[in-house]
């Protein structure tokens, strides 16, 4: 259970992450807004409260791992890592510039704090499974968190990895499924209806729950209180809104990757800054 103060702090952190995402997209004028904004609240819980990590030692062997299998949400992780001090905040202005340390899709070799290189959908989940298996075999007590998209579940590899994770009892894994209901060409329902993903993963052998993916309290409780004694990997289907946090982006029918006019972004960031200010006062 989080204290009221902590809830306000995590909400403020989430809003700051969203500002950081917009900072990057404003600088470049374009980018993956929708699926970055939708996972900001989970990232706030992970990096603001739940996870063990060392900013000055990003490859610390016993850290909790984060694999962003939906690699296009890189800007959300970059904002989070910059706010936590893994690299200077100013680096966010270099997103997708030549020789940047922040490419569109996550790259372990370029960015401190990024645990796996991802981008070709479906591949990150297997990487995370390999990481979780290795950590178990090495006797580590850490956890591996993997972000997977609902559209990404179109990929067969996701289900291969799910079968393996359950069959091998990888209870050190938590899959965070960003169920924002949209993929590039339209809604998940109309492109390739995945059905009830929580039920599907439960059938695959996961301990599966569905929660509000923007409720930091629910997110924290579900992750923190997970009883690994069940011997199953955890699936948290996060009921989210693509583009969450900025009404204009949320309202766009297609917001996977959007052009970001400088003035609009500045206005959105100012609104978020007000939100952060209010939450900080509350905290």
């Amino acid at each position: 259970m989080l204290e009221k103060k902590e809830i306000a702090q995590l909400k403020a952190f989430a809003a700051e992450i969203r500002m950081g995402i917009l900072e990057q997209l404003r600088a470049k004028g374009v980018g993956h807004a929708g699926g970055s904004m939708s996972i900001a609240d989970v990232l706030a819980v992970l990096y603001g409260k739940e996870m063990s990590y060392k900013v000055d030692d990003p490859n610390w062997a016993d850290r909790d791992r984060v694999v962003c299998s939906k690699g296009h949400a890189g800007p959300a992780l970059y904002a989070t890592l910059a706010l936590k001090g893994f690299f200077p905040y100013e680096q966010l202005l270099t997103l997708n510039q030549p020789k940047t340390m922040l490419p569109s899709h996550c790259d372990h070799s370029k960015t401190p704090g990024i645990d796996m290189t991802t981008g070709s959908l479906g591949q990150g989940v297997s990487l995370a499974v390999g990481s979780a298996l290795a950590c178990k075999l090495q006797g580590r007590s850490n956890r591996v968190f993997v972000f997977v998209g609902d559209g990404e579940c179109n990929e067969g590899q996701v289900w291969e990895a799910a079968m393996f994770a359950a069959a091998h009892g990888l209870d050190n894994m938590t899959w965070l499924l960003d169920n924002n209901k949209k993929q590039l060409d339209g809604t998940v329902e109309e492109i390739l209806d995945t059905g009830d993903l929580s039920e599907k993963f439960a059938a695959f052998g996961f301990n599966s729950v569905r929660i509000d993916g923007h409720d930091v309290e629910a997110i924290y409780d579900t992750i923190h209180d997970y009883d690994r004694a069940c011997g199953k990997p955890q699936m948290i289907v996060l009921d989210t809104v693509k583009g969450k946090g900025v009404a204009d982006i949320e309202a766009m029918p297609s917001n996977h990757s959007i052009t970001v006019p400088y003035d609009d972004a500045t206005r959105w960031m100012a609104e978020l800054a007000e939100e952060v200010k209010a939450l900080r006062e509350e905290a």
Binding site: S126, L127, L133, A134, E160, A161, A167
Partner: peptide, 22 residues
């Protein structure tokens, strides 16, 4: 580790393990 008839997943798992020092 027998990954079953899932070659793409096997490659990913092997890579994940490589990232952890194997």
């Amino acid at each position: 580790i027998n990954c079953g008839i899932a070659e793409a997943d096997m490659v990913g798992i092997a890579c994940g393990m490589a990232a952890e020092g194997y």
